[in-house]
Design a protein around this nucleic acid. Structure first.
Lengths: 235, 235
DNA sequence: ATTAAGTCATATGTAAGACTTATAAAAAAT
DNA sequence: ATTTTTTATAAGTCTTACATATGACTTAAT
């Protein structure tokens, strides 16, 4: 009983009690944005005006603005003022995903997430595929097959997978991939020595491309899984 | 030609040229963290010391710290100082995903991302499924079938899908789902009127559960697609 | 001796004002 | 008309001062 009361208290304190001035200002600003129905590109009052309007110091306003800026909701330039931006949802988070500061388990989970994405994306790819895009993939694969240089091959590998995300024509998904890329890269570079252990039923990019041309989403998924599994054992 | 040069310029300016003092401080701090090999829970020097050490004002240091705090890399408490925290990668981004400030296209894209995730997750589910988890899903579905209340059914719907993510036993993926949840919710609540248009080959939760019991990942994917398609037309 | 209440020092949080710098827009020069 | 120079402006940075929460320490009470 006592425990429940206590946790409730903590809950309340965390959600309301310790709400700092900046927190309130941030909420006010967000409400202001959505109430005024501001569009990307629109400007908002300058820092001093906001500070006066909300009865806080410029320091406090700035801190709230810094948060919103980091979240990609606004952008600020000297003299120009502050403008609303289309929330660049995911691209900013990239900065939090520093592989160097990440523990092994999280990295494994992110890699699993990649597997989920690249298998789940199959249907969309078969819907959105065009002759032009396939040709572009073909070029990438040909370049890969000509190259012996390991570093170069790694770069092309990244290119191939990035192109798949791009083919989805979904900017959010593409951004998401870009955000996770440093993590994949880290895995690749750090451990590409063991990748010599060639798996017999490993699917090359060429195989994936051919399926994309004449196969089915399900075939694509199966091959993609075995393709990515190669890396999976590294993590 | 001119366009390319221009975009390159912007790219460079954004990434290097207009590197502000705070940007440099932020980079320094990150390097400091990874060089010192700091573990979650460890403390770092206080603001004034950091300011003196880097030769900038406390204001500037604070701004950099605010960013890192928002990214979940550190946490600060009065008097206690600043401590390293395990980057809670995704949970912070939630704040950027305010459906009210989101344009229709982005919402559509996020919903597509959900489709990708819930189809791509199928293989993992079949690997990680246990008797206990299946029973739990069974309970959810039974509750759903008994309920007529629309609001209640929506709540249970969310529960069912959340449970799937949980079954993946991947904390990162689960966090990601929680982050996107407000967006799904917004779609559901805002437009659940039209959902009366019953699609003939719509797959219920019951169907999905049965497949999870005795079917294959591929069957699961097919049904999941038709299941989510119901909502898709809303966006 | 152990627990509760009170105080004190400390580091972050907030405020206020001055100065610096980038830049958009206006003015001057080509 | 186009380029260059000035100028006003608003964000970026600095300094100083004060407020507030909290861990650590001291004291009082059972």
């Amino acid at each position: 009983m006592k425990n429940i009361d206590e946790s409730n208290l903590i809950e309340r304190l965390n959600s309301v009690g310790t709400l700092t001035t900046v927190d309130r200002v941030e909420i006010n600003l967000r409400n202001f944005f959505s109430n005024e129905n501001l569009q990307p590109g629109d400007g908002i009052p300058k820092e001093i005006e906001l500070a006066r309007a909300m009865g806080v110091s410029r320091t406090t306003i700035r801190e709230a603005l810094i948060r919103l800026k980091l979240l990609g909701l606004i952008d600020s330039r000297k003299n120009r003022g502050i403008i609303i931006t289309r929330p660049d949802v995911l691209s900013n988070i990239k900065r939090a995903l520093d592989p160097q500061l990440m523990d092994g388990n999280t990295m494994k989970e992110i890699f699993e997430l990649r597997l989920v994405l690249e298998m789940g994306i199959a249907d969309i790819l078969f819907i959105k595929k065009t002759e032009e895009k396939i040709r572009y993939l073909e070029m990438i694969v040909e370049r890969e097959e000509k190259t012996k240089n390991k570093v170069e091959r790694l770069k092309i590998d990244v290119e191939f997978h990035a192109m798949l995300y791009e083919m989805s024509e979904n900017k959010t998904i593409l951004q998401f991939q870009k955000m996770l890329l440093p993590v994949f890269d880290y895995v690749n570079n750090g451990l590409h020595v063991r990748s010599q252990v060639k798996n017999e039923n490993y699917a090359s990019h060429r195989v994936l491309l051919n399926i994309l041309r004449n196969g089915t989403p399900e075939e694509f998924r199966i091959k993609m899984r075995s393709h990515l599994m190669k890396y999976f054992e590294k993590v």
